[in-house]
Structure formats: structure tokens, C-alpha cells
């Protein structure tokens, strides 16, 4: 279940970031603090966007930052932050970004279950709208528990 990956320390709402690099740094900091990855991994996430372009903005307002496991991944995990105000990542179709998910996997396969949970959650637009208006990690966790109970 999605909430298994989302302890309160990995969630922040209404984060202020002056640019996309700062946004990824702040989302990544939550992972580094929980020893899910090293700072080198987060630096690599930022570098990836320079190298490969802002394709990480996968949907209007939603970015998915990550790097390769060998760049400093320690565990499987993800952080969720909302950006307020929303930040431009340079993706003309999907900017500005209000929701940034930074994730980390330790190989090519073991994070797929986590991403599947995330994708299923985000495919429902009501869930996206909830994420943009929620204020505390506790509210989100309660919401996840309630929606899992209904499934």
C-alpha cells in the first residue's frame, strides 16, 4: 500500500522553492534525512534534468525526480512535497509543478510495486486534487488509509 512508503517525515506541504533545482534539493533532503539515499543521489537527480531535459514532469503539475540506483541509493523509498507557489521546470506542456515526487530504487525492479501504487493513486484526479489542497502529513495518511479501506 502507498502509505507503507509514506511516513510523515517523507511528506511536506506548501514548500517554497525559488527554482526547480531547489525544489529537487528540498524533496531529496527528506530522503537523505531518512537515510534512503545519499546527497550524491540527489545531486544526480538534478544533473539528470540538465542532461536529459525536463521530461520528468510526467503530467500537468506533477514531476517525478530520480536517478540511477548506483548514484547513491540506499533503500527503496520516496518523498512527496507540494510546491507553493508552483515552480517551472522548463516543460512547456506540463509546467508549473505543484507536486514533486522524488524516489529511489536499489535496482531495476524492486521499486516497481511502489511506483504501481503511486501511479494508481495519481491516475484518479480526485486524489490529485486532494494532494494539492491538503496541509498536513497526518491528513494525507488518514486519507490514504480511508481510500485503501474502500478498495
Amino acid at each position: 500500500m502507498l502509505r507503507d512508503y509514506l511516513q510523515p517525515e517523507l511528506i511536506r506541504f506548501h514548500v517554497k522553492a525559488q527554482d526547480w533545482q531547489t525544489a529537487i534539493y528540498l524533496g531529496g533532503e527528506l530522503l537523505v534525512n531518512q537515510q534512503i539515499c545519499t546527497q550524491k543521489y540527489i545531486d544526480a537527480c538534478i544533473q539528470a534534468s540538465y542532461d536529459l531535459g525536463p521530461y520528468m514532469v510526467i503530467s500537468p503539475g506533477i514531476a517525478l525526480a530520480h536517478s540511477r540506483p548506483e548514484n547513491g541509493a540506499l533503500q527503496i523509498g520516496m518523498s512527496i512535497i507540494t510546491l507553493d507557489p508552483a515552480v517551472n521546470f522548463g516543460n512547456k506542456n506540463n509546467d508549473p509543478v505543484g507536486l514533486l515526487i522524488t524516489f529511489c530504487g536499489i535496482d531495476h525492479n524492486s521499486h516497481i510495486g511502489m511506483l504501481q501504487e503511486l501511479a494508481t493513486f495519481l491516475m484518479d484526479e480526485r486524489n490529485q486534487q486532494f494532494l494539492f489542497k491538503v496541509n498536513t502529513a497526518e491528513e494525507l495518511i488518514t486519507y490514504l488509509q480511508d481510500s485503501e479501506r474502500k478498495m
Binding site: 539528470a48 542532461d51 536529459l52 521530461y55 520528468m56 510526467i58 517525478l64 530520480h66 536517478s67 540511477r68 524516489f103 530504487g105 531495476h108 521499486h111 516497481i112 511506483l115 503511486l118 501511479a119
Partner: peptide, 9 residues
């Protein structure tokens, strides 16, 4: 880019 994240979604 890496075949791990966006493409998996």
C-alpha cells in the same frame, strides 16, 4: 532517461 521511473509510469 533511465528506463526506471517515467517510462515505468
Amino acid at each position: 532517461g533511465f528506463g526506471l521511473g517515467s517510462s515505468m509510469i
